[in-house]
Amino acid sequence: MASQASLSPGPAASTPAPLDQEQEATLRAVVTESFGDLFTAYGFTVRLLDLTHPLASRSHDVVGFIGFAGDVRGSLVLSGPKQLFRRTSPLAGEAGELPEPALFDWTAELANQLLGRIKRRFCTLGRDFHASTPTAIAGRELSRRFSPRAGVVDLVFGVGGDLLCLCFEITPPPDGKIFRPGAEPIQVSNEGDTLLF
């Protein structure tokens, strides 16, 4: 069994510096715009709601997760009601029906596609990370606990009459600069681009 000493964080694991207002604002804008673009691409109108919106604390029953690592690391959690994830699936029938395994798969894929969009925007700001593979779980009366901490973006969106909660959590580098002023953009292609060689 590992001793307590070997489990304690070393000097490199010092608490990261808090984000300044500009970094927080950029991070929030990147996450919000990426979410809006994704759901707009699937034909949905998206409204950003206040976290104090009376419906924001409504419980959910399906959650998609994906992590990322690299110079910056963190996770993305997308939660909402099953009927909303069903309606957004390209495989749903006209009445929005979708078998449960397909619903889980699609929820995970949506988390993956959302992180892909966030990553693309990070790259244009000179910051890259590697995504993990996504997953999803279902439950009853799942609810988010909002955490007002540096590097955590909690958002609630109205999407086609339902609510979706998004939590994007990032551990900044030790200097607190997720986005470095004047950083060289990393070249990326756009969503939907088809390149033939």
Binding site: Y42, G192, T194, L195
Partner: peptide
Amino acid sequence: GAKGWVVKPFKPDQLAAA
């Protein structure tokens, strides 16, 4: 040696054309 690259989400008609 890849022949091409498509960024998701894809457009079905463009994928079929590729």
